[in-house]
């Protein structure tokens, strides 16, 4: 096979990468669930799932099997067509977001660790992730039941409100780096991760990312003590698994993006291992991948830690925080960053 043929370069190679990435991401997502349950258990002074396989490592596979084998129930009141396709609307954007994440430095001109090196990467990401809300709203509405309806309405307003501060905090990163490309942003953090200069933006990003992904303490759309299961109350079997997958894929995505935007991606500050090991590109890539993974998992740990500790906000309080606290802070931060940039340019 000719790897240099135009066909392979434009279609074959990306397709191969997409397939690999899908597999890897699905695997990671499954084990994120395992990690979360394990860590939650540890925080709560118990051990978490430990019966299936060593340390419960086969648990995600068992869960997946169970969900596949379960009956797919469609309630009488539901609108069957929408009910069927809604989970797909949720899952596709969550996975599509991974297309522009750069996991490691490229090992060669055609061996990059990202699918699409789009120069509007961030914009694409913001656009595609906000599509996920359609799946939730559709699913809640199509269920023809009251609790899911509540959940989906909450979800829609929550995601809309937190999209704004999230975007503003990302904008300040773009201002700092001067590019929309994720790889440029990572390169710009060679010396210092943006976490330090943009601590305010980072705080806003963390809070709104938690809210965007519907996680505790902002897990109102599926607040099980109020709304039973939220938008997926009526779902079962594989379709429920899709929602589940979408939620955790979003979590992983948010961790990856936070790593890229604020924690310096695969860079280690003050240790330019890329230039030190320049002769061995594959080793550099592997180290980069490991660094990226460690940072992402650390962020994930923080996520779970928060979930283990805090109570849940109320719906109105959540919106209040979004519009009255986070939005002004992120705007202020954006102005500050822009001012400093301007002053430096002069």
């Amino acid at each position: 096979m000719n790897w240099n043929s135009p066909f392979m370069l434009t279609v074959g190679l990306p397709l191969l990468k997409i397939v690999i990435l899908l597999g890897v991401v699905a695997f990671c997502v499954a084990y994120t669930v395992w990690l979360e349950r394990r860590l939650l258990g540890f925080f709560q002074s118990r051990v978490g799932p430990n019966r299936v396989g060593p340390a419960g490592l086969i648990q995600p596979i068992a869960d997946g099997l169970k969900l596949i084998l379960k009956e797919d129930i469609i309630p009488t009141n539901a609108r069957p067509f929408l009910f069927r396709i809604a989970p797909i609307f949720a899952v596709v954007p969550a996975f599509a977001g991974f297309a522009i994440v750069a996991f490691a430095p490229p090992a060669g001109p055609r061996a990059s660790f990202l699918i699409s090196d789009a120069n509007i990467g961030i914009l694409y990401l913001l656009a595609i992730t906000s599509l996920g809300v359609f799946g939730i709203v559709l699913g809640g509405w199509a269920s023809g039941s009251k609790y899911p309806l509540f959940g989906s309405l909450r979800s829609a307003s929550q995601m809309l409100s937190y999209e704004v501060p999230l975007t503003f905090s990302v904008l300040s990163v773009i201002l700092m780096a001067g590019s929309f490309r994720l790889d440029d942003i990572i390169q710009a953090q060679g010396k210092l991760p943006f976490l330090v200069p943009l601590i305010l933006a980072f705080g806003v990003y963390v809070i709104s990312a938690v809210a965007e992904t519907n996680r505790a303490p902002f897990d109102l759309p599926e607040a099980e003590s109020e709304l039973v299961g939220g938008f997926h109350t009526e779902y079962s079997g594989m379709r429920f698994a899709f929602y589940f997958l979408a939620e955790y894929a979003n979590v992983v995505l948010v961790c990856c993006v936070a790593t890229s935007l604020f924690l310096g991606g695969y860079k280690i500050p003050f240790l330019p291992y890329e230039t030190l090991l320049a002769g061995n590109p594959w080793l550099v890539s592997l180290i980069g991948l490991a660094v990226f993974a460690v940072k992402a998992v650390a962020f994930l740990y923080f996520y779970i830690w928060i979930r283990a500790t805090f109570p849940r906000y109320r719906y109105d309080q959540l919106l209040k925080i979004g519009w009255k606290v986070l939005l002004p802070i992120s705007l202020l931060n954006l102005l500050l960053v822009a001012g400093i940039k301007l002053a430096m340019l002069r």
């Binding site: 258990g41 540890f42 925080f43 002074s45 051990v47 830690w305 283990a308 500790t309 805090f310």
Partner: peptide
């Protein structure tokens, strides 16, 4: 106060489990 709450959960994270 949120930080002290996080400290409590982290304390039990490190302690032996009761299961």
């Amino acid at each position: 106060e949120l930080a002290s709450g996080l400290a409590v959960t982290f304390k039990w994270f490190r302690k032996p489990k009761v299961t």
